Amino acid sequence: MLDDVDRRILRQYQATPEVSGQELAERAGVTPATLTRRLDRMRAAGVLRGVRAVIDWAALGYAVEVSLRVTLDKSQPQAFEDFAAAARAVPEVLEIQTFLGQVDVRLSVIARDLAHYQRLYREKLLALPHITDLEALMHIARVKYDESLPL
């Protein structure tokens, strides 16, 4: 589906998404018209799903990150749906992942400090429906974080 020109455009785009269309076209070695046409085609095909701002939550005063591994009561027919809907309503929950296996769900949660996390844990997270087991893993360091694809 993608040719070498598309991959070159995507490599340049993910490396420097803030550059202008003119500069992106120059970096990718295509004309601005070609760049626009190819980006539009990749958006229509779902290759490019959008443009977003990446905000450093630590710079906004969130110093604690915790991964919660959750096991749900799978005897309840709506356990996953109910849990996910309730977890989406907690603003400090950044990510919800579901799994097959012993752990059903992983939540990525942020808090300003340990006191904030403790309140969040007691008041909101423990109140999420259908939990049978909950394990908290405190993040110490992010060793690698890269959303770039090897194009």
Score class of each variant (00 low, 15 high):
6 D>N: 09
7 R>W: 13
128 L>Q: 04
85 A>R: 04
59 A>E: 13
117 Y>Q: 00
76 Q>L: 04
112 R>S: 04
13 Y>A: 14
4 D>G: 11
138 M>S: 12
114 L>F: 13
75 S>W: 05
73 D>T: 13
7 R>N: 07
88 R>A: 06
24 L>M: 14
30 V>Q: 02
21 G>L: 13
134 L>W: 02
96 I>A: 08
121 Y>P: 00
43 R>S: 02
8 R>A: 09
13 Y>F: 15
113 D>T: 07
119 R>E: 05
105 V>N: 05
23 E>M: 07
111 A>M: 06
98 T>G: 10
22 Q>Y: 14
106 R>K: 08
104 D>W: 00
43 R>C: 00
65 E>W: 08
72 L>D: 01
56 D>M: 03
136 A>N: 10
137 L>I: 14
132 T>F: 08
6 D>K: 02
128 L>T: 00
8 R>E: 05
85 A>P: 01
104 D>A: 00
139 H>S: 12
120 L>W: 02
72 L>K: 01
11 R>G: 03
62 Y>F: 15
85 A>K: 08
80 F>L: 11
5 V>I: 15
54 V>L: 15
2 L>D: 06
9 I>W: 05
60 L>I: 05
114 L>V: 14
64 V>P: 00
149 L>D: 10
104 D>Y: 02
82 D>Q: 11
102 Q>L: 14
131 I>A: 06
12 Q>K: 10
131 I>K: 06
33 A>Y: 15
93 V>A: 05
131 I>C: 06
29 G>Q: 03
63 A>F: 15
146 D>M: 09
35 L>A: 03
100 L>Q: 13
134 L>K: 03
84 A>D: 07
108 S>M: 15
47 V>W: 04
21 G>W: 10
9 I>R: 02
136 A>M: 09
132 T>L: 09
7 R>C: 08
140 I>E: 01
64 V>A: 01
151 L>G: 03
28 A>S: 12
64 V>L: 06
147 E>I: 15
151 L>H: 10
150 P>F: 14
91 P>G: 00
62 Y>L: 00
49 R>F: 08
57 W>I: 07
75 S>V: 04
110 I>Q: 05
41 R>Q: 07
58 A>T: 08
53 A>D: 03
59 A>Q: 13
40 D>L: 06
6 D>C: 06
143 V>W: 03
41 R>C: 00
33 A>T: 15
63 A>D: 08
115 A>W: 08
88 R>S: 05
123 E>N: 12
